[in-house]
Simulated scan of single mutants.
Amino acid sequence: MQLHGLIHTFPKEIKLFIGAFVIVLSVGYFTGLLFVGQTSTTAPHGIEENYLGNEENEEAEVMKFKKGAREMLTIIHTHILSMSFIFFLLGGLLAITSVPKKIKTFLMLEPFLSILLTFGGIYFLWTGILWMKYVVMLSGIFMTASYTVGAFFVFRQLFKK
């Protein structure tokens, strides 16, 4: 079965359906990033503070406490599962585009590595391995870049003849 370029053969209504899905998925994804920005976890110190707390800092604007084990497992569990579905669906759509195969393969696989590094890194940071905040930050950047480029390619391919 030939998947490469299959998206170009779809009828207009299926392309509109896929386009609407990618738009709504992107709104959800980037809304999540806005939430991350609101919790000041976009810088290494903010990432550490979000999971380990800041009780020792008497001048902190917002007091944060170390997350409990149950809360950490819930965060990690729900994010790994939901993001796996997001990238599985986006990867499935990328598979049927005519994007060069090496780029397509990278964009289909990289997010899964980033999911494991981001949320595994959050767990290890929580256990006290403080340098993992840099892994979390970098893998989060790669995950977002992969999502953005992948969604852009799928959307652009919907209008390519």
Score class of each variant (00 low, 15 high):
I96D: 01
I96P: 00
L89G: 14
Q2T: 15
I86H: 08
F106A: 15
S84N: 13
L73C: 05
T39S: 09
G32S: 09
M63S: 11
L33E: 07
Y123S: 03
S82L: 13
G28A: 08
V62M: 10
H45E: 12
K12Q: 12
L73N: 12
M108F: 11
F65H: 08
T118G: 03
G120R: 03
A20R: 01
S82N: 08
A43M: 10
P111T: 05
L33P: 00
L90D: 04
V135N: 03
T148V: 12
I14E: 10
L93Y: 09
Y134I: 02
V27F: 12
L158C: 07
F21H: 01
N50H: 11
P44T: 13
V62D: 11
T97Q: 05
T78C: 02
E59L: 14
G128L: 04
L130R: 15
L117N: 07
L6R: 12
K101Q: 14
G120W: 03
L158W: 09
L93I: 04
K64M: 10
W126R: 00
F159T: 04
I122C: 02
F85K: 08
V36H: 09
F17I: 03
K104H: 05
I115G: 00
L6G: 07
P11I: 12
V62E: 14
L3I: 14
I7G: 08
F21Y: 09
G37T: 04
F10D: 02
K104R: 15
A95K: 02
L73S: 11
E59H: 13
G32K: 01
F88S: 07
K104L: 12
S84Y: 04
N54T: 01
E55T: 12
I23S: 02
M132P: 01
G150R: 04
A43Y: 05
H77R: 12
N54I: 02
L6T: 08
L94D: 06
V149I: 15
M143P: 00
K161I: 00
G32L: 04
F10P: 01
T127E: 11
F10A: 10
G53F: 00
T42S: 05
Q157T: 13
Q38K: 06
S114W: 03
G28D: 08
W126C: 04
E58W: 03
K101F: 11
G121M: 06
L34A: 06
L34G: 08
P44I: 10
L16Y: 14
I18W: 08
F87V: 11
T39I: 14
V22N: 02
Q157M: 03
A43K: 09
A43E: 11
L90N: 04
Y147T: 06
I47E: 02
K161L: 11
M108E: 11
K102P: 04
F124M: 09
K101R: 13
T97H: 05
F88H: 03
Y123N: 02
G32E: 02
I129N: 13
E58I: 11
K64I: 02
A145H: 06
V36R: 07
T31Q: 10
G19R: 06
G5E: 09
I141F: 07
K15Q: 09
L33C: 06
I141S: 05
T97W: 03
I23V: 15
